[in-house]
Design a protein around this nucleic acid. Structure first.
Lengths: 169, 169
DNA sequence: TTAGGTTTTCAGAAAATACTGAAAATATAA
DNA sequence: TTATATTTTCAGTATTTTCTGAAAACCTAA
């Protein structure tokens, strides 16, 4: 194997191992990495071969990646098999990940908190007030995080980055 | 069980279920939630009883929470057992979570990318250049996220929030 | 010391998650 | 339509993660 292929393989493998820390399974992370560094679109069979995974596994994770918007199906004239290519624009990738995390992390948390806050409103004891206050403080924060992710992910990169850097100066 | 206790129990249970989405195991999330809404510090036995978990499980997760800085051990005069209480300041909680995510997510990613970028520098082919460029773009982004988390988490809440809100207006 | 109380560790069990492979469903060409 | 290629589904299996419970280690008071 040539050096280039070795580096790619190394990247794909290690990125897959990182996946679990990011809340995605190994295969999904590896497929994403593979497509990110592939100059051309790949078929399910290409991916099965390259990563040594089953057809079912490849299929499931390809569909999941498509549903996230991290990869897309493309049609190649004269070919029957589906081909997949990754979104390579890093800002778009960032926006997609931010949106997904909001959906999976902060929104459910806010839902749980809101529900409990609602119920705690009625409690008049000092301890009840304290609970209400603590949950509300948490929820305000989670909502703020929600709003920030929402807004950031919907902006153009060029409009935002200079401002962020200035803010942190 | 009175209404207040019910609400707390509900919160603890549901927060625990959310934990997995945040990359924390259920018990750790539940212990954290329990201490967050507990007006007084609790012992390992209190927690075992309240959450129906084993001593080993409680002990391990309490230690993990302490190591994150989300809870602390406190000594109560005349008592032999360790007592634990949660950090309740939401901004501090946010900073801790941000720091930990940086450590577990963006730093390892950056490490993998840097290493591959280093190796890809040598490759002279067009495809090699393309790989190098793609990995670099990814790494720039991950590093930026790193820097932002770092800076945000080290600032006072009062200094930062107004600016963030203005930025997103 | 030492005896009893408390915490830590860790091997094995249980639960949750991910993967395989083959059958079923679907799509396309002849 | 029929034959063939391709994709999807899912029951069963494998792997990983989490949890238990009891033994070992560690404290503290007497």
């Amino acid at each position: 194997m040539n050096e280039l292929a070795e580096i790619k393989e190394d990247f794909v493998t290690q990125w897959g191992a990182l996946g679990s820390q990011w809340g995605v399974n190994r295969t999904m992370a590896m497929i994403h990495a593979l497509l990110l560094v592939s100059p051309k679109a790949l078929t399910t069979d290409d991916i099965m071969l390259e990563l040594s995974v089953s057809r079912g596994n490849a299929n499931t994770n390809l569909r999941e990646l498509v549903s996230w918007g991290l990869i897309r199906q493309i049609v190649i004239k004269g070919e029957r098999k589906d081909h997949y290519e990754a979104e390579k624009d890093t800002w778009k990738i960032f926006c997609i990940v931010a949106r997904e995390r909001k959906r999976r992390e902060t929104e459910p948390a806010s839902k749980v908190l809101s529900h409990c806050i609602d119920r705690s409103k009625k409690i008049k004891s000092a301890e009840g007030k304290e609970l209400h206050q603590q949950l509300t403080a948490l929820n305000d924060f989670v909502d703020l995080a929600n709003t920030i992710m929402e807004k950031v992910a919907s902006k153009e990169q060029s409009a935002l980055l200079p401002k962020v850097l200035k803010l942190l100066a």
